[in-house]
């Protein structure tokens, strides 16, 4: 039996790199897919809008744990052995794409129609309207919720421990099994999550207090 000492704490702290890797994978993967989801949701074609809305409902309605099992086991049907990092990364990306897509869709919809129309009246092509007129305003609206969702992603990476990926929760489990000190091990894990998530949550709240939607002054729309 091992004592719970500095080496054990360091083991958990070093696993942090994998939690952060997974978070980055999910945030960037989910962010890119989320942009696609948001843009397709405001598409002119009704069928595309319906199809994407179906995708959002299915992904948001499946527990992340089940989604992770599906991503972990499905590739083996094709004879591909996917490692836990990629399986978890794909599941988190799918999940994040649906939630971020929904957040960004509502930000795009919050831009007054006059903005689209006046940009078109200046003969800007659709892509430039989005790029130079709509997106800069939508980003300001969406930023607080996006940072808030980032906190969610950090916490959700803990589920990767269930399919055996060694990030901090799994590292905590390993330490707890080796030292028989589950309380110290898991409190240490919880503390690490808190140290990442709390500042992000605060940042998100701070952004919200100065976001354009909250200001009581004359509207800039």
């Amino acid at each position: 039996m091992r004592e719970f000492g500095n080496a054990e704490v360091l083991f958990i702290v070093f696993a942090l790199q994998w939690t952060l890797t997974l978070t980055a994978l999910a945030f960037f993967g989910g962010g890119i897919a989320g942009i696609a989801v948001a843009l397709l949701r405001i598409s002119r074609s009704r069928y595309i809008r319906l199809a994407v809305s179906g995708y959002i409902q299915v992904v948001q309605g499946t527990p992340l744990l089940v989604l992770m099992f599906l991503c972990y086991y499905a590739p083996s049907l094709f004879g591909i052995e996917l490692n836990a990092l990629f399986a978890a990364g794909i599941a988190l990306t799918l999940n994040a794409s649906a939630f971020l897509g929904a957040i960004w869709e509502s930000a795009l919809r919050a831009i007054p129609k006059a903005q689209w129309e006046s940009a078109e009246a200046l003969a800007l092509p659709q892509s430039k309207v989005l790029r130079f007129v709509i997106a800069p305003q939508a980003v300001r609206i969406a930023l607080p919720s996006t940072v808030g969702y980032l906190v969610q992603i950090v916490k959700e990476t803990s589920l990767a421990s269930i399919i055996g990926f060694v990030e901090i929760t799994r590292a905590g489990q390993l330490v707890s099994n080796a030292t028989f000190e589950p309380m110290k091990a898991y409190v240490c894990v919880a503390l690490l999550y808190f140290l990442i998530c709390f500042p992000l949550s605060r940042f998100s709240q701070w952004l919200e207090t100065r976001s354009p939607g909250r200001t009581k002054g004359p509207s800039r729309g």
Binding site: T169, M183, A190
Partner: peptide, 23 residues
């Protein structure tokens, strides 16, 4: 409230199920 919102539920379950017996 801050602890509940800023730590994963999985870890909360582990602390309560595996951790509390040592107390």
């Amino acid at each position: 409230v801050e602890i509940m919102r800023n730590t994963p539920m999985l870890v909360q379950i582990f602390v309560i199920f595996f951790g509390l017996p040592s107390l």
